[in-house]
């Protein structure tokens, strides 16, 4: 996977892994933005066919491995407590969007994520060493993602942060976020992307680009 190949991706094919609260909403807004989208849970696509057909019409339910192999961008929308069992080779060579958050009361204490020197996406990146990781979509509620969309230039358009170590991967995903209906605010590394985490200044907040940029660039007290 080279930066050049990535930045030439104008309409990446998207695979959403996870068909719970969050996955189908992401799949739906991606279909509506004109992307080719597949969706997978941990098992047989037959089990999520009804969910996909009603909640994300147009997204194709597939086995996870098939969804990933046919996609340029893989969106990880699985619970963090299931990540330890996630096979890194599945997404080797892929651009992976990490939407996951670590919240011990629902995830249980996950030893892997307890090292507070690193953000959860940095830890994800270390484990998925052969993938390019981009952190975004974690700080907007799944229940807001649909209604929050606005066309480019709308004064009400909401900003979302996009953090990655790989600038080409960041560009591709920022393009997706813009096309979904949000202003993408780039954050130049996964380490800086920690500002997008729970407890950070933008988590769950609806902000314009200017407000968002101010919030993430003001060092936390």
């Amino acid at each position: 996977m080279t930066g050049r190949a990535l930045s030439s991706l104008r309409s990446p094919r998207i695979a959403v892994l996870g068909a719970g609260h969050t996955g189908p909403v992401i799949a739906r807004v991606a279909v509506e933005a004109g992307y080719r989208v597949s969706i997978a849970a941990s098992g047989d696509p037959e089990k999520i066919e009804l969910i996909a057909s009603v909640l994300a019409p147009g997204a194709e339910p597939r086995w996870a491995a098939d969804a990933v192999s046919g996609a340029d961008v893989v969106v990880l929308a699985i619970p963090l407590h299931r990540f330890a069992a996630f096979d890194p080779s599945l997404v080797a060579g892929k651009l992976v969007v990490d939407t996951m958050n670590y919240w011990p009361p629902t995830d249980g204490v996950q030893d892997l994520f307890e090292d507070r020197r690193y953000g959860s996406s940095e830890i994800v990146a270390r484990r998925l060493a052969r993938s390019a990781i981009v952190k975004t979509l974690n700080h907007i509620g799944y229940h807001e993602l649909d209604d929050g969309r606005r066309p480019a230039g709308s004064p009400e358009r909401r900003a979302l942060g996009v953090a990655a170590d790989d600038p080409a991967a960041l560009d591709v995903v920022a393009g997706v976020i813009e096309r979904l209906g949000y202003d993408a605010v780039p954050l130049g590394s996964l380490h800086t992307g920690r500002v997008l985490e729970p407890g950070g200044p933008v988590f769950g907040a609806s902000m314009s680009r200017t407000e968002f940029e101010q919030a993430v660039h003001t060092p936390a007290a």
Partner: peptide, 13 residues
């Protein structure tokens, strides 16, 4: 929001 880390509601929200 303190426990779960999301933004405090505003008059607007």
């Amino acid at each position: 929001s303190r426990i779960r880390g999301f933004a405090v509601p505003t008059k607007d929200s």
